[in-house]
């Protein structure tokens, strides 16, 4: 048994909280029912630090810090809500909507989408930036699942679950910058991949309608990533 990690006390939004030294600000906040918005974070996967929604203010630190990867420290004073943070968070959501073709009304995940929820939660009622309207493919070659690049926000949860949990390494990221997109193996049609185990984990962790199960519509298409915690827990026990 490892020695218990030391406990740190800190202040989040004026509230005194304590957390283990190996916990992130995000963990500590959520344990104390202080909500911090996230999109790329998912319990059970490694952190990407990519969506920037969880940025928080730390007293004494000029730069905003991502709560998901910043470990708690003794005496830390964290602010998770401020007009500045809220403005940036709304802009992140706007940028995502403008980047690809998220047409909520005709999306499989309409009303079950984390991006759509986030827009509502943050009060994004319209997107001020010009929509880019890229022309993107939809890969329907897999017998059970579909990948619609129009709806992908590149959170890479699918890449991480495929690499870290399933171990198949089927998903990867092609190229870079605004042209980056997901690929399976050597950018082949998903249905022809021979590394894919068709386990469907990527579909369950996808926050939007980018990855979905064929023939499931409406409430049936609700995602459920809770299996991650179960798998990780069981693995821990086996060890």
């Amino acid at each position: 048994m490892n020695p218990a990690p030391s406990v740190k006390t800190l202040m989040i939004d004026g509230k005194d909280v304590s957390a283990r030294a190996d916990q992130s600000i995000l963990d500590a906040a959520r344990e104390n029912a202080i909500p911090i918005p996230t999109l790329c974070h998912l319990d059970g996967l490694s952190e990407a630090g990519a969506c920037r929604l969880c940025l928080v203010e730390l007293k004494g630190t000029p730069r905003l810090q991502p709560a998901c990867v910043t470990l708690v420290e003794e005496g830390m004073e964290v602010t998770t809500q401020s007009p500045r943070l809220e403005k940036y968070r709304r802009m992140v959501v706007e940028l995502l909507f403008a980047e690809r073709n998220h047409v909520c009304s005709v999306c499989v995940s309409n009303n079950m989408c984390e991006l759509q929820d986030m827009a509502k939660q943050l009060g994004v009622t319209h997107v001020r930036f010009p929509y880019r309207y890229p022309r993107l493919p939809v890969d329907t070659t897999h017998e059970r699942f579909t990948m619609d690049h129009n709806r992908c926000i590149l959170c890479t949860r699918c890449v991480r679950v495929c690499t870290e949990i399933e171990g198949a390494h089927t998903w990867g990221v092609f190229g870079r910058g605004v042209d980056a997109h997901l690929i399976t193996d050597l950018d082949i049609p998903w249905g022809t991949s021979d590394t894919c185990t068709s386990c469907g984990k990527c579909v369950q962790v996808c926050p939007t309608g980018a990855l979905f199960e064929k023939s499931k519509v409406g409430m049936q298409s609700q995602k459920n990533p809770d299996f991650l915690n179960y798998l990780n827990e069981m693995r821990e026990i086996e060890r």
Partner: peptide, 12 residues
């Protein structure tokens, strides 16, 4: 190296 990674690197 996984194929997806090799391709990801080559195109990056």
């Amino acid at each position: 190296v996984p194929l997806s990674q090799a391709y990801g690197v080559a195109t990056f």
